[in-house]
Design a protein around this nucleic acid. Sequence first.
DNA 1: ATAATAAAAGACTAAAATGTCTTTTATTAT
DNA 2: ATAATAAAAGACATTTTAGTCTTTTATTAT
Lengths: 146, 146
Amino acid sequence: MGIFSKTCEYAIRSVFFIAHRTAGQSGRVGIKEIAVGIDSPEPFLAKILQDLSRRGIVQSTKGPNGGFYLDSASLERPLSDIVAAVDGNDIFYGCGLGLKQCSEINPCPLHNEFKDIRNKIHLMLHETKIGEFNDELMNGMLSLKK
Amino acid sequence: MGIFSKTCEYAIRSVFFIAHRTAGQSGRVGIKEIAVGIDSPEPFLAKILQDLSRRGIVQSTKGPNGGFYLDSASLERPLSDIVAAVDGNDIFYGCGLGLKQCSEINPCPLHNEFKDIRNKIHLMLHETKIGEFNDELMNGMLSLKK
DNA sequence: ATAATAAAAGACTAAAATGTCTTTTATTAT
DNA sequence: ATAATAAAAGACATTTTAGTCTTTTATTAT
């Protein structure tokens, strides 16, 4: 188990893929090409992208020349929007030891330590924009494949 | 899903509990009392503690007056030993996007960002010792309950 | 209008994580 | 030695996550 669920890992990788494949050109990219591009099971990814599409994180159109794309607003969104949509906010606000009542006035032993780490994760995901890696992905300096 | 698995959350909380309940007094504490003390399902916790016992992270004896305890060496061990035993090393070394081949020479888009976060988690868990919170747990300043 | 295309939707299966129950084994006090 | 105690072991059950398959709906080109 990593920091994110498998679903969330696929979600982030696919959104990065769609971003760099469609940025500027106002084109679309199909589920098959995305699945190959990020080494993911196609039907599972389809479900994930349907969900992201419903939530407005990615855009899509059906039919010939259809596929997934990102409008300019979506390219500016922070990664934390994807994580929150897929895995929820626990990673940003939840107690590291799973205690519902953990808080400043009723802290678990690792409360402050985890607060620090969660804040760093939140900050990082909030500062990173979906479209930020397009250039490096386009020229092959970054990888989205297993 | 938090940073750790449920199993790992219970493991850490139970070890903290055993630590502060048995430190010094050379006593033992039974599974029932531990389960109540950390709000966990008793049979599930039993399995977890059997595993930690096999691995030498906690000590135990059977029979009357038996139970779980920690020797002085165990009290000095870092929390990272528990996490590594239960959840493995992925949280310390794995790629945030789930890519097996992700590395310095073949990085994912978030490689450096995650390296930073993983290092902080590792450092925190390595610097924190199992027996470190005994006093505060004993006088009720810290909580292990939901 | 029609046929082809591609995502949407939803039912289904598989695997892993979480949780429960029963039996066995080791220890201790009598 | 025996009975009582408490963890160890292992078989089960449930829930959640991950993954698959089939049918429907929307779009486009002809």
